[in-house]
Amino acid sequence: MHVPARSLSQDDSLVHRLDARAKLAALLGLVIICVSTPPGRWGAFVFYAVFLLAVAALSRVSPHHLLKRLLAVLPFVVLVAVFLPFMPGQPRVAVGPLSLSRGGLAMFATISTKGLIAVGAVVLLSATTPAAELLAGLARLRVPAIFVMLLAVTWRYLWLLADEARRMKRAAVARGFTGRWLWHARTVGRMIGALFLRSHQRGERVYLAMAARGFDGRAVGVPPARLRGGDLLFAAGSLALLIACRAVLP
């Protein structure tokens, strides 16, 4: 998969300063409301998109950055849906030389619209919320501590190991590795084995360093924090607006 540049969130704005819990509630609420909207309710879908664009504009994240990340996942979102119009089924419509199924075409339109809005919401969430805040938000939302600790350790070492994997791949290419056929996968497999040994050794070193600093096996607690008025207003207002639109708009 495509992993974009290191820091996914660096700017500062009203949206960045919202509590992670408020953003999680509003944007994840948007995904659920959007996905559960019946097909054909185009008024509602247009409103969801406008809502997302408004939050994006408020966040002042560069549109270039958002678009780049959107385009990176878009192929996976429409990958299967692209075939839907070509499925057998009546009635059919002719588009140029192609004969397409009308039901499949409608399903393709609905799925890609919903998928696009859902991906947009998640991209916006991660572009305006540093991982540390997202993790603190999850902990304050009562996600089990062991799970939050796992997420935190994973996130901390993900870039490091991804870099390690890239370096190993580049070194193999420099030695003349050109994987083109299935049996070349063995080489990639050995690379992955070596990557595991290296990451495990690193894990042991990290554990010793943590133990030396007093780690006793308990996950570090996140201090509770009250939601501010603005956070509550944003979350409740967004959800109320979105739910109302899902109920009312055609």
């Binding site: 796992l150 490091l160 894990g203 554990y207």
Partner: peptide, 17 residues
């Protein structure tokens, strides 16, 4: 417990190859 997180990071990196 930290090793489990390291393994998750490893799986993530291995999936990129």
């Amino acid at each position: 417990a930290p090793l489990l997180g390291m393994t998750a990071a490893f799986v993530f990196a291995a999936q990129m190859l």
